[in-house]
Design a protein around this nucleic acid. Structure first.
Lengths: 226, 226
DNA sequence: TTATTATGGTAATAGTTTGTTAATTATTAT
DNA sequence: ATAATAATTAACAAACTATTACCATAATAA
């Protein structure tokens, strides 16, 4: 299995970290963060990221210095490093490339630009982004358009009610849906069916998906987990 | 667990998206974006937003159509939807309300106006912006949606009464709840159960959480502390 | 059409978990 | 020390869910 690409973000400003983190997570990268050089080095050793994005301006140990240190670590000699800086800090650009920066990103940057920049960088570094399909729920994929559930690559043709029930539960993994909500949402507020009907459908789903996805919360309802 | 309010923004123009996103993030909302109808639907399914702000004019699938589709999704039938459009596109206003729009916002709009509009809308929809941080209570997290208590990263599946009792006590750490209040609140004013029942439940909770969280105040009641 | 199969629902019952009580022991306050 | 209150345990009852078999109906194929 190819790894998910891991990116370490290093910046002392929390909101920039958050901005980057948010936009890169959305792309399916695994994001790690650090707020100073020391932390960054710790983290880098721990997770062996594919790419490190370093803010040049940081208190104590700046990005350049951090980069230099990281380059000395075994196993991290070839990690991709991109510097992040406010526009017009040209001097650091030069210093940055000298210590082995792979790219140089100016703040502020728009999310889309950031992302395509990252992608290009990873491509150059021969690191392929394995797109993690976030619609993959623990080996189960729900194809709403095709009204089909795919489990471990195999298509399951679930009957309508079973599909809808699964769809509802899986719409918010971890959340408990009460019987009332389930009836309302899958059967419709007016239709009157007994509570056992839900159990039976749950059982059928469990039969097909395995017992580990739908969990009973006694006295409350059911939830989907993976 | 009170969630942060999630808002999905849908517009094909990146700068509008950014404008909205920026201003709403500042208010503490969780912002998700999509640039077309299809993406919007995907995203909506994935994140179950509380509010969707949809641009009416978009290539391929317009806002009206997108709205219609979203309304058919289980779990999203009741999501708040606001349309966004250039002034004077009156026709769409009508069509918008027909497919179940909850509000209608004209572009351009000033940030402050936008924000108060959103707040009003959420208020109408009974969605409160709760900025309660889910800070764990001394290593314990109570997940009301999932009806689960997480202790040191491990999930504890508490039975209903135990969960509700813990929920009550932990709702105000440090405060003593009398037996009377506990019975009223967890068991309901009419139900008559003996006082020992509470003790037994407290004991079970202590067994699972450790003895340090629930404290007896003899002659008065119990309290949660951490 | 008719036969066949798939689906959705019910009912009965078995099985499990949860809630409550009662009895006993331990603790605390006065 | 005594009385009041709480902790603990085990047993029992109640609540709830799982499972199975069965029937009606709808969809599908011959």
């Amino acid at each position: 299995m190819s790894d998910v690409v891991k990116i370490l973000l290093v910046d002392d400003e929390a909101d920039i970290l958050e901005f980057l983190s948010y936009n890169l997570k959305k792309e399916g990268y695994d994001i790690y963060t650090a707020t100073n050089g020391k932390q960054a080095i710790e983290m880098a050793k721990k997770v062996s990221p594919h790419l490190i994005i370093l803010d040049v301006m940081m208190p104590d140990m700046d990005g350049i210095e951090t980069c230099r240190e990281i380059r000395t670590l075994p196993g991290l000699k070839d990690v991709l490093i991109a510097f992040l800086t406010a526009r017009n800090e040209d001097y650091s650009q030069i210093a940055g490339f000298e210590v082995g920066a792979d790219d140089y990103i100016n703040k502020p940057i728009k999310p889309r630009v950031l992302v395509s920049r990252i992608k290009a960088l990873l491509r150059r570094g021969n690191i392929e982004q394995v797109v993690v399909d976030k619609s993959d729920l623990g080996g189960i994929k729900i194809d709403r358009e095709g009204f089909v559930v795919v489990k471990d690559g195999k298509a399951l043709n679930l009957p309508k009610k079973e599909f809808e029930l699964l769809e509802l539960l899986a719409s918010k993994p971890g959340k408990v849906f009460t019987r009332e909500v389930i009836l309302d949402s899958v059967w419709g507020g007016d239709v009157v069916v007994g509570d056992r009907t839900i159990d039976v459908h749950v059982r059928k789903l469990r039969e097909k998906l395995g017992d580990d996805y739908i969990k009973t919360v006694k006295g409350v309802g059911y939830k989907f987990e993976f």
